[in-house]
Amino acid sequence: MLKVATAPHMFSPLDTKRLMRDVVIALMPAAVVAVFFFGLNALTVILTSVAACVMWEYLFVHYLLKQKSTINNYSAIITGMLLAFNLPATMPLWMVLIGAFMAIVVAKMAFGGLGKNIFNPALVGRVFLFISFPVQMTMWMKPNWHDFFNTDVQTAATTLGILKHLDASSSATSLTHEVEAVHDIPNYLQMFVGYTGGSLGEVSALALLVGGAYLLLRRVITWHVPFYYLATMLILTSAMWLLTDDVRYEPLTHLLSGGLMLGAIFMATDYATSPMSVKGKIIFAIGCGLLTFIIRFYSAYPEGVSFAILIMNAFVPLIDKFYYPRVYGTGRK
């Protein structure tokens, strides 16, 4: 029996499932680095988060919506991994469960599921936890690769935390204090490979860049959002650094520390919550960069990537409304 079909009769091998699987693969290097530096704690947090996200999605779709299960499209796994990457290694597991609930049920499924959510689910989960449990969310474990099973927590400050502290203390305290604090800042190499305190997935710029390169190679994301996001931050911090000669603005430190790389490569490029056209993507990325800069330097928080991306997520429908490609044969004289 011959088939009747409408054109086109061939399809690109790139389907939703493969795209999502590629993102999971791209997240792997960062996960490996996290487990390497933070040991068993990291592994349990990542596995709990992924399992919790998949579970919530299954329960929601199966028992509430009574529809065909959607967990096989990998998107819950990505959300789970990204959420874990945004948490410290010492996070109590029941909090991870709550974070996963916020991410999957409130931020994603309540809006209609994959592709219809306005805000990045993992970031919603993280910000919810960050506001609800500020102590646990800022208890950074000191990296330690000698002892995998060591769960005895030694805390360490994040680079950005040190810088913020510097900001608060600089006016009041003595110069020696400042010098001491500056001394605590890890060197570039440490920050690049990830030997620094911080959330699980954000510490290693190297691993994230490797993942990003893989995504670009597989044409999962375009270069626009990460490039313009990082470039905006780099330009703003460089300008301030050159103008004020203040160590707090050192551009490379800002590029390599905190969640900037993770946010620029994996969060801001999330399909559902970023604009669709190239023009829109550029505006979105510059907005993210600008907001990150403002929050990092002029707010009470040391880190601003999650808030910046969430705020820009809210503008995506507006950006999409005004920035779209020019239609052939219109506009130009």
Partner: peptide, 14 residues
């Protein structure tokens, strides 16, 4: 039916 229709469910397209 003599053939297999493999396209979106729409009479106008078919």
């Amino acid at each position: 039916a003599k053939i297999f229709y493999d396209a979106p469910v729409s009479c106008r397209l078919a």
